[in-house]
Simulated assay, not measured.
Amino acid sequence: MPDTSRPLYRLLHELDERFDQLMASIEQAATLYEATLPSTWRFDGVNEPTWLRAALLDMWHQQHQDGRETRNYIALIAADEPLMTAFKEVNTAKHAISELLQRIKQSDPQALSDAKQRLPHRHPEVEHVLRQSGLARLHLKQCWRQLPIAEAPVARVRFAWYSSGRSIKRITVKEAEHKLMQLDTDAPHIRIQLSKLAGIPSSEPLAQVQNQAPLMRANLFFTEPLDDGHTRRALNIAMPLIVPAHEERLPHIKAPPLIPPAQRTRAKRRDEKLESEAFLPSLRVYRYR
């Protein structure tokens, strides 16, 4: 019998309850959406009633999926007050799970992995999806990512691809050496890189570069200034953007190109400080010029 007095057991039991609350809030929002069919714009041009339910329930890793990747649902929904409230309740449930998962991770990292395996089996609909499509494992980022909600009526929305290019993180020679030592140190190419690293000053800063996928960005222009005086907001969009229904119609929408730009058009000022060839290719580490 499990020791129900243990703090970790109580946390896992609370996670079960919060996951149930999330599923209930998704069911409520999806059912209300399908019953009212509010004005909706979708980036992919497809608009059938059950798409939102599928988007909100998409919280699982697919087979062979990179764990860093997420599946996006770019859309805009003009929600009346009841539907807006339902979407906010989904966000509240997502936030509650995110907060609790962080506490469980701090308490026992292995328990977090165990929890991800057992949560899907609490709901027949989810388990059916897993069996039918071969999905596996709870995708934490997709589980807790929030629905973007505009705080006031919006006159127009301009969607645009945001190609952030590359993220650049400074690391020390010691940190780079530690990362290389985690790889196969018997491999010739790793030994070569360790030798190169030993040949530079230990105080020299290095840059680790990570290519980033393009993001969809929504620029919101409000019908009236907000309390802080601003008339616009910019949001990264991975889930449907929810705006208050204004005369039961969508705001003016400027749609983005179907395909993101191959590369960013702005000058890569930080990139220009780096050498053109990777110093440690296995780590994507560059030297500064």
Score class of each variant (00 low, 15 high):
M1K: 11
M1F: 05
S5W: 09
R6C: 00
L8W: 04
L12E: 07
E14P: 02
L15S: 14
A24G: 01
S25N: 07
S25V: 00
Q28N: 09
A29R: 02
Y33K: 04
A35V: 00
D44L: 07
G45H: 01
G45W: 02
T50S: 08
A54L: 08
A55S: 09
M59W: 06
M59H: 03
H61E: 10
Q63R: 15
H64A: 10
D66T: 08
R68C: 07
E69F: 06
Y73V: 03
I74F: 10
L76T: 15
D80K: 09
P82Y: 05
L83K: 07
E89N: 14
A96N: 14
I97P: 04
E99K: 02
D108W: 05
A111T: 01
K116Y: 04
R118P: 02
R122S: 06
H128M: 07
R131W: 13
S133V: 13
S133L: 12
L135S: 12
L135M: 08
L135W: 14
K141M: 08
L147P: 11
P148Y: 13
P148A: 08
I149V: 13
E151D: 11
A152N: 07
A155H: 13
F159G: 11
A160P: 00
Y162R: 01
Y162G: 00
S164P: 00
S167L: 02
K169Y: 06
R170G: 14
E175V: 11
E177D: 15
E177Q: 15
L183F: 10
D184A: 10
P188G: 13
I192E: 02
I192P: 00
G199P: 02
I200D: 04
S202D: 15
L206Q: 11
N211D: 07
M216I: 04
R217W: 01
A218G: 06
P225C: 05
D228H: 12
G229L: 10
G229S: 03
H230K: 06
T231M: 05
I237P: 01
A238L: 11
A238S: 11
M239K: 14
P240D: 06
P244E: 01
A245Q: 12
A245C: 05
A255T: 12
A255H: 12
P257Y: 11
P261K: 05
A262M: 06
K268C: 02
R269W: 06
R270K: 13
D271Q: 15
E272T: 05
A278M: 03
Y288T: 14
R289C: 03
